[in-house]
Write a protein that binds this DNA or RNA. Sequence first.
DNA 1: TTCCCAATTTGATCGACGTCAAAGTTCTCG
DNA 2: CGAGAACTTTGACGTCGATCAAATTGGGAA
Lengths: 241, 241
Amino acid sequence: MDSQQKNLHSSEMPAVCRVCDARHGGVCATLTPAQLFELNRHSTRRKVDAGNELIGQGESVSHYSNILSGVIKLSKMMADGRQQIVGLQFAPDFLGRPHLCESTMTAEAATETEICSFPRSLIERMANETPGLERKLHTQSLKELDEAREWMLTLGRKTAQEKVASFLYMIATHIDPDHGEQNTFDLPLSRADIADFLGLTIETVSRQMTKLRKDGVILVENNRHVTVPCLDRLSAAAGND
Amino acid sequence: MDSQQKNLHSSEMPAVCRVCDARHGGVCATLTPAQLFELNRHSTRRKVDAGNELIGQGESVSHYSNILSGVIKLSKMMADGRQQIVGLQFAPDFLGRPHLCESTMTAEAATETEICSFPRSLIERMANETPGLERKLHTQSLKELDEAREWMLTLGRKTAQEKVASFLYMIATHIDPDHGEQNTFDLPLSRADIADFLGLTIETVSRQMTKLRKDGVILVENNRHVTVPCLDRLSAAAGND
DNA sequence: TTCCCAATTTGATCGACGTCAAAGTTCTCG
DNA sequence: CGAGAACTTTGACGTCGATCAAATTGGGAA
């Protein structure tokens, strides 16, 4: 019975959604098949190359998106060009600030990214009709708030060494490892982006990476590929006790 | 008819709620009279002196609160004692992290504060039953997220001078001014708290306050009382263009 | 492969902010 | 009103991370 229900369920679902990761953990997980069909009718999937801007600071927002793969960086810029990355978003996060039409930041693809976009108004309406969706969006906002506050501690009180280690630790625990054994991954951000995230300069980031490497806390190949032999040592370098 | 409805409404409301500020703008504004009665039956109002801790980092949370007056500071502390204030909350904000039972920070009264507390479970249940309440909590989370990200920019990229000016500007625009004419107010935080908020030391905060005073951007009496003759000049000193 | 350009690293120097110390101010409470 | 404590300001000096400059590495195109 249960399996029959499931089959019925999946056959009622748009084909693209059936194989889409956002069904698991993303906002779509809260929608009924009928809603999925409606959303699907107005949604577009696309690939975005690294470095491309999705939303500009101060622009009005007409679309929200699900992140299907890749990493998005959210950043704020001052009039004189100083920049600060204020958040990173990974699949299957929801991209967009509910209940507000003008963006207060820039959203840019940090890596090659795949997104599924739909009209703002449609999501707003569905959120009103579907408590589960509103709740899901709320939950993600709270997660982002927790992360933002964690970074406030990092930005305000940690040393350059601890900042870089904290960043690596966050990436190591957010990216699915290539192997189960050792923790190894590609950095989704350039040194310049890491600097903008940590409130440092490129040079300082580089020096601290070198130091962590010489101390044996991390291994680095080709600048972007990092291996963490012992996550606890990295955590300690990050100042987490 | 409308006024009759209103009278009926207010007569059905708990007496304490009728004169309570949280009815305007607070979460209670979304509740029905019946819900207000139920909430009221399980709620306690109390005064908290400046410096008293409401929730400790790592503690499990059994109660949420409305802030009726005063200022609450939310802070995180590292194992070695370094501290960062990650948020300030003013009346009629809601105090508590929905959908999570363990607090990741300390909540402490910055000034004398009046709060109205109720059991966590009751709010969670009402949020499930009342889309408007869930929505209201969501809205506040988003506001806090916007503020947190604004502060990430301040912490990561602004100079000490700009940080102090940004703080004063934020307070000036959040506190109701004593007079309509000039912008004058009491600082809700000590120099030590301001330092913990801005990721600076007490001495640096003091020096920057002195500089802003000598530059005529602010007037200071008795350390705590500040007057801002021209809000635009303060805004400029804060680096907002 | 080889060249070229961008990204990263490394080095030398500087300055903003932290640290340490002491003096001054404001608040509290008897 | 006065004494003591807590908070704030001011000064001298040190340090971490920024700045400026140059060398090195890596990746993509011909």
